[in-house]
Write a protein that binds this DNA or RNA. Structure first.
Lengths: 126, 126
DNA sequence: CCGAATCCTCAGCGATACTG
DNA sequence: CAGTATCGCTGAGGATTCGG
């Protein structure tokens, strides 16, 4: 359970610490760009520019920013090849791959219910 | 695949329309509050105020806003009991329940890798 | 109790330019 | 090619209020 941070439970100190950390991680990762990046890296290693093309519509800034965040949380690994021009490659780590599985689930879900959603939207917008 | 919107594929018109719709839905739903709301509603029906308590830290405005969005996309059902004071209950629909499964997966993931992430963060922050 | 509207603020984000 | 920094703006989102 991530939504509610328990208060007054026994063994409180550690529980709430874990919960607030979980919540923090959740807030980091539950964002559109992070998901799309993870999705794209699922196929395999990509370099920065390739990733930029893979994730339609992302800006240079958002890409670096999210990559740093994902790297910090240990979801992607960053490999710099000290050539010129520089070549930087990004790969999913094992935790990243694990998360990818659930992100894939979300993509499947989206395609599965696409029609229903479209219908529901039209009903609502009246 | 949601990340990249294919261009120049055969049968292009419908594919890109579906993709852009998928992308739009993805952008709607892949946000922190939506996930937390879905998580909380997984337990069962909740009324507005209960939901507000369940989702720690959400503002009145964000809650209504996300609930409207989820309702529009057909993930939650809104039931108004015409009593006084009013009583409004929210429930996950079948598509909502289906998505909840993957959101649960993400919660499990979070708790599973909590330790690794904490370590990774400390390494990174130096 | 629930929802919509209004105001106001601050951070997210894009654009641009500069380093290695 | 990849990353960082700066600037400026739009809009997300909190606080508050009123209405049903």
């Amino acid at each position: 359970m991530v939504a509610k941070q328990h208060k007054g439970a026994p063994d409180e100190a550690d529980l709430t610490r874990a919960d607030s950390l979980a919540r923090e991680i959740f807030s980091d990762i539950a964002n559109k760009w992070a998901f799309l990046i993870i999705e794209s890296l699922g196929e395999g290693t990509l370099r920065f520019s390739a990733l930029r093309n893979a994730v339609e519509g992302i800006s240079h800034k958002m890409l670096t920013q999210n990559l740093r965040m994902l790297e910090r949380n240990g979801l992607v690994e960053r490999n710099v090849h000290p050539t010129v021009p520089p070549r930087v490659e990004y790969t999913l780590t094992e935790p990243g791959q694990a998360l990818r599985a659930t992100v894939d689930g979300m993509c499947d879900w989206t395609h599965r219910y696409l029609g229903d959603i479209e219908v529901s939207r039209r009903r609502f917008d009246t």
